[in-house]
């Protein structure tokens, strides 16, 4: 009989994951913060100048391989520049672009989502069509179109990343706002004659802040990937600026005889994006266990 009475599967989700909660956020957030801190502190570290060329030291393998040099832990590229130093300095720009691109998409996206979910009607219809249209434009193609017209620059890159990101926020926040606006506290505020902008910014925005935080985290990973793809294609940062994607483009040409030039920046991107995605998932289950998706 007991076998029949025992629940066959946990009612919702895995107890193990629910217990992870804040611990998981720390477990992924701390290494990520460490990587960010090391990149930020790169000028203070005893590293070779990332732009210093030395043809006599070109294409040195990583230190642990034969022919390696202890001064160049991860080897050097075709111009003799230190790969480790370039990864750390490149990380600064990569993170900067990721955060700027993310913010430039998150702020208008969230506001549009709030407004269209709250007012519904025409505003909502217009915003929703634009969201669909944005999703219909293949991102890299759109980026190519914009950058072909404007030329390569950091501001063009951030503009493109913002165009890429805003629709996601608008869509999700709109859906949250739609259900939020029917909640008693909002109805009460409206009955009390509180002006709509105040309801939106002072009362509804804090209620969707958790969702925005999760989206922001997940979006940073996507933005880093997008930036690296654009820089890889030669549409992103301009030399002598260094980003991980631009380093990969250099490494592609050396692939057959110097694998380390392409391997390490790619590993850096993958590690950071994986940590960001894990952090986003952990935050989602921590902030709202009910909304936890796989």
């Amino acid at each position: 009989m007991t076998a029949v009475l025992a629940p066959r599967r946990p009612a919702s989700g895995r107890p193990a994951t629910r217990a992870r909660g804040a611990g998981a956020v720390l477990a992924f957030g701390v290494p990520l913060a460490l990587i960010g801190a090391v990149c930020l502190a790169a000028p203070l570290l005893p590293l070779p100048d990332p732009a210093a060329q030395s043809l006599s030291a070109a294409l040195r393998p990583p230190a642990w391989l034969s022919g390696g040099d202890a001064a160049h832990l991860l080897g050097t590229d075709h111009l003799g520049r230190d790969v480790l130093a370039r990864i750390l300095y490149g990380g600064r720009l990569t993170f900067l672009i990721a955060v700027a691109g993310m913010l430039a998409g998150a702020v208008p996206g969230t506001l549009l989502g709030l407004v269209s979910g709250f007012y519904r009607g025409t505003v909502d219809a217009v915003v929703s069509r634009f969201v669909e249209a944005q999703l219909a434009l293949p991102f890299i193609l759109l980026a190519i179109a914009v950058i072909a017209g404007r030329g390569r620059s950091l501001s063009a890159l951030v503009l493109v990343l913002a165009l890429f990101g805003w629709a996601q926020y608008a869509r999700v926040i709109r859906a949250e706002t739609l259900s939020l606006r029917e909640r008693p506290f909002v109805l009460g505020l409206r009955c009390a004659g509180v002006p709509a902008p105040r309801i939106l910014l002072a009362h509804m925005l804090p209620n969707v802040a958790g969702t925005v935080l999760v989206l922001v985290t997940l979006q940073i990973g996507t933005v880093i990937l997008a930036e690296s793809a654009l820089s890889f294609l030669g549409l992103g940062v301009v030399s002598p600026q260094i980003s991980w994607g631009a380093m990969l483009a250099d490494g592609r040409d050396q692939l057959t005889h110097a694998w380390w030039v392409a391997a390490f920046p790619g590993l850096a991107i993958t590690t950071v994006v994986l940590l960001v995605n894990l952090l986003g998932d952990a935050m989602r289950s921590w902030l709202d266990p009910k909304k936890r998706r796989y």
């Binding site: 599967r9 946990p10 895995r14 193990a16 994951t17 990973g221 990937l225 690296s228 793809a229 890889f232 994607g245 990969l248 490494g251 592609r252 692939l255 694998w259 392409a262 391997a263 790619g266 991107i269 993958t270 994006v273 994986l274 960001v276 995605n277 894990l278 998932d281 796989y294």
Partner: peptide
């Protein structure tokens, strides 16, 4: 759900979403 296969699949999926495709391509060529 919640067992090894689940964790394995989720690790594969998450890595697949985090890896730059062109870098994976380069490494596969290598």
């Amino acid at each position: 759900e919640g067992r090894f296969a689940d964790r394995f699949a989720s690790t594969v999926a998450l890595t697949g979403q985090s890896i730059p495709l062109f870098w994976l391509g380069l490494m596969l060529i290598l």
